[in-house]
Design a protein around this nucleic acid. Structure first.
Length: 188
DNA sequence: TCTTCACCAAATCTTACGTCA
DNA sequence: ATTGACGTAAGATTTGGTGAA
């Protein structure tokens, strides 16, 4: 099975130093990851738009040499107006919000290497050392991330595993976070 | 038919953040 | 300008139900 296969493409995004660290969060079930990733392709877009303009923006972002441009470029493909904000937000997250997720600890303590690999696919997290040991910290989505999620939600209020995976990668979130967001969004 | 797994909704918990005295 | 209490928004978890394999 391509279980290992699904891990590396996420790293290929080159999200910068943060991508090399391990998110300690553990998915509920290993098999869920398998199924979610079964359709995985190393693609950067949700294929919502094929407009040349979008690609130009994405290329410019990539050419800028910014560590987050791959994510931003992917964001362009989904929702061009939000792309710039994504870049800004990602920069901010570097110094602040990037510490969010690894501390959501309630049930993410049993870590095996496989799970860590899986999480690295989508995690932007880098620093469990910052506050990871002190209880969970709650992520606050950036405006750009929220905008992209909203855009996606408008198009389909539920996600298939592929969409979830892609969206998570584009937002640099874990698939679980995207899933939770959609659950909460539907509920509200 | 039974079991397992994945997904969902609803309820609830928990934390971040804004406001105000 | 600072600070602590309070309320709210929203991310995360838990629980239980359902359908597919």
């Amino acid at each position: 099975m391509g279980f290992d296969d699904i891990c590396t493409p996420g790293l290929v995004l080159g999200l910068g130093p943060s991508s090399t660290t391990i998110d300690i969060q553990k998915p509920k079930k290993l098999s869920s990851i398998k199924s979610e990733s079964s359709n995985f392709e190393p693609s950067l877009t949700l294929s919502l738009s094929g407009e040349a303009f979008d690609r130009v923006i994405a290329k410019k972002l990539e050419a800028a040499g910014d560590p987050h441009t791959a994510v931003a470029a992917a964001a362009v493909a989904v929702h061009p107006p939000a792309a710039a904000a994504v870049v800004d937000d990602l920069h901010r997250q570097d110094s602040a919000a990037s510490s969010f997720s690894n501390v959501s600890v309630k049930r993410e303590r049993e870590i095996c290497s496989e799970d860590a690999e899986i999480e690295r696919v989508s995690s932007r997290v880098s620093d469990e050392d910052d506050d990871g040991a002190n209880g969970r910290k709650k992520l606050r989505l950036t405006k750009a991330q929220s905008a992209l999620l909203e855009e996606s939600f408008k198009q389909h209020s539920t996600l298939n595993p592929k969409q979830k995976q892609d969206l998570a990668r584009e937002l640099n979130l874990r698939p679980r976070q995207v899933e939770v967001w959609f659950q909460n969004r539907r509920a509200r």
